[in-house]
Computed example of a mutant assay.
Amino acid sequence: MAARDPGASVPVRAAVARQAVEWLVELQSGEAGDATRAAVQQWRAAHPEHERAWQHIAAVNARWRGAAVPSPLAHAVLLDTPAVPARPLPRRAAAKTVAALLCAGGGAWLAHQATPWREWRADARTGTGQRRTIVLADGSQVSLNSGSAVDVRFSAGERRLRLVSGDILVSTARDRAARPFIVATAEGELRPLGTRFAVRQHAGSSRVDVFEGAVAIRPRDAGQAPPRVLQAGQQARFSAAAVADTRPADGDSVAWADGMLVASGMRLADFLAELGRHRHGRLGCDAAVADLRVSGSYPLADTGRILDTLRATLPVEIHFITRYWVSVRPARR
């Protein structure tokens, strides 16, 4: 009897699907120890959605056992046993293998989860804790935050950048051929006018902060309505249908480009959500301390030190189940 995909009819959030793949790649990298394997098991047990994402990969692999699947991948997916290959599969190659298997599996589940697999295939991407800057053919610069991905498509008529996930900081260059520069997100398109700006892809919306020049926003489903133009110092979110009210641009939101996380009265839960983008595994926040406020500038090069600082300055304790499974909760009296 053919293996049945237990999660095929139940949607899984893109972020959870992405985590499942990251854990899988970590397991088969040849560097995973007992702590990593225990963290994977804890992640799977933490929520039924996690297990559905994991089981989908196992089901697809079971259907394709006849394909040339690297043995460490098969072991990691199906048996949850330590993979000890003679030559560990490089993580980039492993990611492509996983993406290929999932695409081969097809079905409704994958249709709902297209974003994670597009990330692995993007022209430029960053993993957890990575940041990079690329220079495009026209001289424009694009900085990618942790866990971000973009596709680049230059043609004779336009310069197009598609933000697949995460957030980017863009400084556009003048084009000799006067081609328009376009940044596409899931909700619409942006046309910068000689500018420096940031774009972040959220679930169901995009956010733009303009620091120099101006940016025209055209939501995907706005029809013939004129675009909304943001000037330097302005910020706005937009959905596929409309642009929200303009607010002041947040310069602190792009401190990551300088390797920093800057907070000014930020909720602890929101601060940890941002910090969690820069470290592997799960970083949780107990509801009892979620509304504590955090201020300061924190170097992202050492996320463990940031947690130590929180413990020293707030009434919280940092609870480590493993190195990859951390929660912040009220300090014991």
Rank of each mutant, 00 (worst) to 15 (best):
D175W: 08
Q224G: 12
P219H: 00
P226Y: 04
G259C: 03
R200H: 12
A255K: 15
V210F: 12
V199R: 01
P248F: 02
A216C: 07
S171P: 04
R159M: 11
V183P: 04
G223H: 12
A177M: 14
A249N: 04
A198K: 10
V183G: 05
R160M: 14
I168L: 10
A214H: 05
G188D: 01
S205M: 11
I182M: 14
S171Q: 13
G213R: 11
E187V: 01
A232N: 08
A216T: 13
D209C: 15
A241V: 03
L190I: 12
E187A: 03
R159Q: 13
R176M: 06
S205D: 09
A173W: 05
Q231S: 15
D258T: 13
A184W: 09
A257T: 15
V243C: 01
A232W: 14
V208D: 02
P219M: 03
R174M: 08
R179E: 07
D252R: 09
L161Q: 13
P248A: 02
L193F: 12
Q234N: 04
V183Q: 09
G233F: 07
P192E: 12
W256S: 13
R228G: 00
D175C: 12
R160C: 10
D245V: 09
G204T: 04
G166Y: 10
R162G: 07
